[in-house]
Design a binder for these strands. Structure first.
Length: 552
RNA sequence: UGCCUGAUAGUAUAAAGGUAGUACGACGGUUUUUGGUACCGUUUGUCUAGGUUCGAAUCCUGGUCGGGCAACCA
């Protein structure tokens, strides 16, 4: 008995198509980004959906760049998109570009002109908009709509040959100016843009619109299931109309609800703005919801795939809690991250009954979640240690399982210590904590009677390395910054990044591996930042540990 | 005022006329050399009004509410 996971609506469609033998049981999907920005977690949903569907049903997926608007697009984005898709763990069958089909698309347009289904319009953008009418009033035809096929053919060729400046003419499909669907009111097929294209260079000065490129590209590739987001529903009639008139492969479009994540923004335009206006470091700033940002933050491909799996696929609008994303990365890292000790906000502890010049070596396993602990590392121990400032309280409340005068804790992987006193400076700040240790309580060899509730982490003062630690919080202070009254940037969280420049880490962390996740015991999951060097170690906090201790 | 969509615990997502379930969150407990993990338990839901039916989240009718549509963007 295999556990039955219910199907989402797209899986049901695919299974039905498989059952009826549509397309001979062949499944081919595509992921079609426009290379005008970096991929974000919303794209990850689409990627997991398109590649996942094909994988599940023995099909394939094409990576196709929807590069029909040269002024917004760039090779930099193409490269980053390929890297991100690969990093997520997917392999495309073919790397394709809508621009590969420019000749074919041009021929398609000629066919429609010959069939009397397309015409060259000399109107301005404003005139065309006005002539389209409104949702409640039909559009009105202009004098260009009646041009002969011969004239249209010649004008279109001249458009292509660069005889006209930008905006002088467009090619329009002749569909239905009275359609209740605005997209069918003689939509534009081609516009003139004397712009350099990142792939076709200056070969073209006319470029097809999305509606005249996407469905045709799907048909050329014989995509069986063309999956896009809800806002393309009104385009579907047009998608089908072009395919029918052209009598090409009948790809079908299906729509699902895009991902919305709270406390962030997801539109490429807004993300670009955050970058260009310097609110974040770059597209891969660890606070960004981009794939590259998440990667730099310490998210793993598996955690993102798991997330996409858990949020499901449906047609209703949604707003997912970031806490689910955080759950997914904790779940993954808990099983894979090596445990290390790091003191983020240090205060000195002196073990007064420990010999001045002595050092010991303690052992700490790498990962208690795995049989055998995946090995471990030596941890130097001495009379003076750094501990976390918040692990000591002058006047500890009840149930404070840490340090205060008279309280005992275990030092992780080492001894039990009891606090006897502390030292304050002139301003009243605690500067040193004095403890005594129980020699018989050594980790793994504890023969003593004393049992303690709390265990704290520490780093030997004599052996500690210094590191910069960057703590990240949500980028925005409100759940849905795009949907507030004011500009979304007014809701930026001023404390989304906190830099601790003087954290102490155990010496083993000096050889931390880039890209690997580490759990700083009791503090969270961290990973090396891309700017980290041997001289200046920099760690990013991926996510905190779940904190079940409710402060009173 | 038109057209297209959608509506199930706090958030997502199942139930294809027959016991409203699952995950995350929250809350409580057990275990613990991480106040983590693991394990156990509790909590809260079918937008609304009618109708069909032995029986409706599901089918029908009306309403309410949300999202989208009038870029030479995708």
């Amino acid at each position: 008995m295999s556990e039955e996971r219910s199907l989402n609506f797209l899986e049901e469609i695919v299974e039905e198509d498989l059952r009826t033998g549509k397309h001979g049981g062949r499944i081919l999907t595509r992921f079609p980004p426009e290379p005008n920005g970096y991929l974000h977690i919303g794209h990850a949903k689409s990627i997991c959906l398109n590649f996942g569907l094909a994988l599940k049903y023995g099909g394939k997926t094409n990576l196709r760049f929807d590069d029909t608007n040269p002024v917004k697009e760039d090779i930099e984005y193409v490269d980053s998109i390929k890297e991100d898709v690969k990093w997520l763990g997917f392999e495309w069958a073919n790397e394709l570009y809508a621009s590969d089909y420019f000749n074919q698309l041009y021929d398609f347009a000629v066919i429609l002109i010959k069939k009397g289904l397309a015409y060259v319009d000399d109107s301005s953008a404003e005139e065309i908009a006005a002539q389209k009418g409104t949702p409640t009033e039909a559009g009105t035809p202009n004098q260009f709509r009646g041009r002969s096929a011969e004239e249209n053919l010649q004008l279109f060729a001249e458009m292509k040959d660069g005889k006209y400046p930008d905006g002088a003419k467009v090619l329009r499909a002749k569909v239905d100016l009275a359609s209740p669907n605005m997209h069918l009111r003689d939509p534009l097929m081609y516009r003139i843009k004397h712009a350099h294209h990142h792939r076709t260079g200056d070969t073209w000065c006319i470029y097809p619109m999305y509606d005249f490129a996407h469905g045709q590209s799907d048909a050329i590739e014989e995509i069986t299931h063309s999956i896009c987001t809800l806002e393309f529903i009104p385009h579907r009639d047009l998608y089908n109309w072009f395919i029918e008139q052209l009598e090409i492969f009948p790809s079908k479009q299906y729509e699902f609800a895009r991902l919305n994540l709270n406390y962030t923004v997801m539109s490429k335009r807004k993300l670009l703005q955050l970058v260009t206006e310097g609110h974040v470091e770059d597209w891969d700033d660890p606070r960004m919801p981009t794939i590259s940002g998440l990667r730099r933050r310490g998210y793993t491909p598996a955690s993102i795939r798991d997330f996409c799996d858990r949020i499901g696929v449906a047609k209703r609008e949604n707003m997912i809690d970031v806490s689910l994303l955080e759950f997914c990365i904790r779940e993954d890292l808990n099983k894979t991250a090596w445990r290390r000790m790091a003191v983020l906000d240090p205060i000195k502890m002196v073990i007064t009954n420990y010999p001045e010049d002595e050092t010991e070596t303690m052992f700490g396993e790498n990962n208690p979640e795995v049989e055998g602990g995946e090995g471990g590392r030596d941890i130097p121990f001495g009379r003076e240690l750094w501990i976390e400032r918040e692990d000591f309280m002058e006047e500890p409340p009840k149930k404070f399982f840490r340090l205060g005068v008279g309280l005992s804790v275990r030092l992780k992987s080492a001894y039990i210590v009891t606090c006897n006193s502390f030292v304050k400076d002139a301003e009243g700040n605690v500067t040193e904590i004095h403890c005594t240790y129980l020699p018989e309580s050594k980790s793994g060899h504890d023969t003593g009677e004393l049992k303690v509730k709390g265990t704290i982490h520490w780093v030997s003062v004599a052996h500690a390395k210094t590191a910069e630690v960057r703590l990240y919080d949500r980028l925005f202070q409100v759940e849905d910054p795009s949907n507030e009254d004011n500009d979304f940037k007014e809701y930026l969280n001023p404390n989304s990044l906190r830099i601790l420049s003087n954290a102490y880490i155990e010496n083993d962390l000096a050889t931390a591996i880039p890209g690997k996740g580490y759990q700083f015991i009791r503090k969270g999951y961290f990973t090396l930042d891309k700017h980290s060097t041997a001289d200046k170690l920099v760690f990013n906090r991926t996510v905190t540990l779940k904190d079940g201790w409710v402060k009173k």
